[in-house]
């Protein structure tokens, strides 16, 4: 029995180590965001130091960062909204109605994810240049709709399938039409899973980098691009500012961590 106890102990330490590796980089970055340059460029990493707000104030006060933040919010918000308005009804129809090509539709939606981002970004750059929309939010929103719409459909189909059929049939007996059933019954009943799907698609476009890098040069630059430009600065790297901008960039997706964790849990539990 003691070998079993030792095994448990080893397993526990391994899990604890993994948890440390998951959390420490983020916490360390948060700590670094409050350090002065002298406390960052030390041969020995410092845990105790005089905290400063300079980095964060500098980042928040920088015009390029504010512009990037506004662009990111508008572009992610609009493309997620369009993805929801178009994608949720489509997912419902695929989930609930006997459509001949339902499998083909789902495979088509998934296959959009196989497209290498470069393969989408290069021709789109030429297209948006020709249309005079290069480096505009409109162009980026249209391009990101491809990502949000396909991911929302993909994740919302199973969410609608999990709505008990009896609930919808009862509504039908009560005289609800097919559209009323969708808006008044299916949508509210599935809402918790649907929020998870929508949050996922938001994280996807908020974090997107390659397409934004190729489709913007100044006006429509999103926050990841602005942050990456800071990381490419010359020799005298402002490490503190960099850490602060990484924190700002990473906060919005991390705000959804609770929703997404619950979503993951419910998806797998109910499938089995």
């Amino acid at each position: 029995m003691s070998s079993r106890g030792r095994g448990k102990w080893v397993a526990k330490s391994a899990v604890a180590l993994a948890a440390a590796i998951a959390v420490i980089p983020a916490l360390w970055t948060l700590l670094n965001a409050f350090k002065n340059r002298v406390d960052l460029v030390t041969p020995t990493p410092l845990l105790i130091f005089h905290p400063t707000l300079d980095n964060i104030l500098y980042v928040l006060g920088r015009e390029s960062v504010t512009a990037g933040l506004i662009n990111s919010i508008l572009v992610s918000g609009a493309s997620v909204l369009i993805g929801m308005v178009l994608g949720l009804p489509a997912a419902y129809a695929v989930a609930r109605y006997p459509i001949k090509r339902a499998d083909d539709i789902q495979f088509f939606v998934l296959s959009l994810r196989f497209l290498p981002p470069v393969a989408v970004a290069i021709p789109l750059m030429v297209i948006w240049l020709d249309l005079g929309l290069y480096d505009s939010r409109v162009a980026l929103i249209a391009t990101y709709t491809l990502l949000t719409l396909s991911s929302i459909i993909w994740l919302a189909v199973p969410a609608f399938k999990r709505v008990p059929k009896e609930v919808e049939e009862a509504a039908k007996v009560d005289g609800y039409g097919p559209y009323a059933i969708f808006f008044l019954i299916a949508l509210p009943v599935a809402s918790r899973s649907l929020i998870g799907a929508v949050a996922f698609s938001f994280v996807l476009v908020w974090n997107e980098f390659l397409i934004a890098l190729m489709l913007t040069t100044s006006d429509a630059k999103t926050l990841p691009i602005v942050a990456s430009e800071l990381t490419q600065l010359g020799r005298d790297v402002p490490w503190g500012i960099l850490n602060a901008s990484v924190i700002l960039l990473s906060l919005p997706p991390l705000l959804f961590i609770g929703i997404l964790s619950g979503f993951l849990n419910s998806v797998i539990k109910k499938k089995a």
Binding site: A19, A22, V246, S250
Partner: peptide, 30 residues
């Protein structure tokens, strides 16, 4: 743990790349 282990994947790749680039910095990296 099922919340904590989501932190890395939710971080933008640009952020993750920077965080580790700094962690692997030959002079100041943790």
């Amino acid at each position: 743990l099922s919340v904590v282990f989501l932190i890395p994947v939710l971080m933008p790749r640009v952020s993750a790349a920077f965080v580790w680039k700094f962690a692997f910095h030959p002079l100041f990296g943790l």
